[in-house]
Computed example of a mutant assay.
Amino acid sequence: MNRRFLLAISMVALLAASAGCLGYVTGGGEITNETLDADPPAAYEWDTNADVRIEFQADSTYLTVSNVSDREELRLYEETGYGIEEPLEFRAFRYRYANGTVINGSQFREQGGEIEQTPDEVWVRFGEDMTDGTIAYTSDGSPRRFLARTYVKGSYEVVLPPGYTTDFWLFGHGSPRGYDVETVDGRERLVWEEVTTELIVVQAYRERDLPIFVGIFIIATAIGIAGYLYFRRQLEELRETRQEMGLDVEEEETDDFGDDGPPPGMR
């Protein structure tokens, strides 16, 4: 076997590993009952009017509550910066029946539900008697720049941590447009009546950081203006120097040509 063939095989293996293709060989891993049964950082807000509620905590975790009525399964995944899909990492899974009974992840499995992780996603499959329920889980993310895939279409609400806001458009906003902003118990809430896009994006900032951001913006603007004026001044000095050295003679030649009249033969 020649060296070129071995090198080609090595390159293919390296590309497969970097793209995550080897995950299909090694398996996607399993989400343990211990992970699913972990305690959430705060109580899940089951009584919400939105189809999906995302609530941020001060420790950069977020709690998601999703209405999964009339669904047989749900695919949970996220996309890396290279366009590769990966399983959504979550914990503290709960399922709530329509009658209000809440069970944890291991009980969900015992009662006919499935939670299976592959190299690309996590599949949550519901049992025969789970036709009108709600799921909740905890994951990690920052409200400063948050991207959420809309696994469930419908109405959404995103609750920011205390002290965070999207009020100043330059540093805070939400996408898609058409949402309402309200404050409940001192926490800002973004509400969408209907979301059909693949992503929700929220960018927020701490209210106490706004003077710092404004100061940085003013300083950066002042530096930009000063740099522009300095550049213009350098160009002016260069032009004046060329004129003093007699290098900028294009205008004089044009004037002389105009005084002498047209070229010979054209008079």
Rank of each mutant, 00 (worst) to 15 (best):
F90L: 12
F90M: 14
R91P: 02
R91T: 09
A92G: 12
R94L: 04
R94W: 01
R96D: 02
A98M: 06
A98V: 08
A98H: 10
V102A: 08
S106D: 10
S106G: 07
Q107H: 04
R109S: 09
E110Y: 03
G112H: 03
G113E: 04
I115M: 08
E116I: 15
P119K: 09
D120H: 09
D120K: 09
G127C: 09
E128V: 13
M130F: 06
T131N: 15
D132I: 03
I135Q: 03
I135S: 01
A136H: 02
T138D: 07
T138P: 00
S139A: 14
S139W: 05
D140T: 09
S142E: 11
R145C: 07
A148F: 15
R149C: 00
R149A: 03
T150V: 06
V152I: 15
V158I: 10
V159N: 02
L160N: 01
G163M: 03
G163N: 07
T165L: 05
D167M: 08
D167E: 13
F168V: 07
W169V: 04
W169L: 07
L170I: 08
L170A: 13
G172P: 00
G174D: 10
S175Y: 11
P176D: 11
D180L: 15
E182T: 15
V184F: 02
D185F: 10
G186K: 06
G186I: 00
R187E: 10
R187C: 05
W192G: 12
V195I: 15
T196P: 05
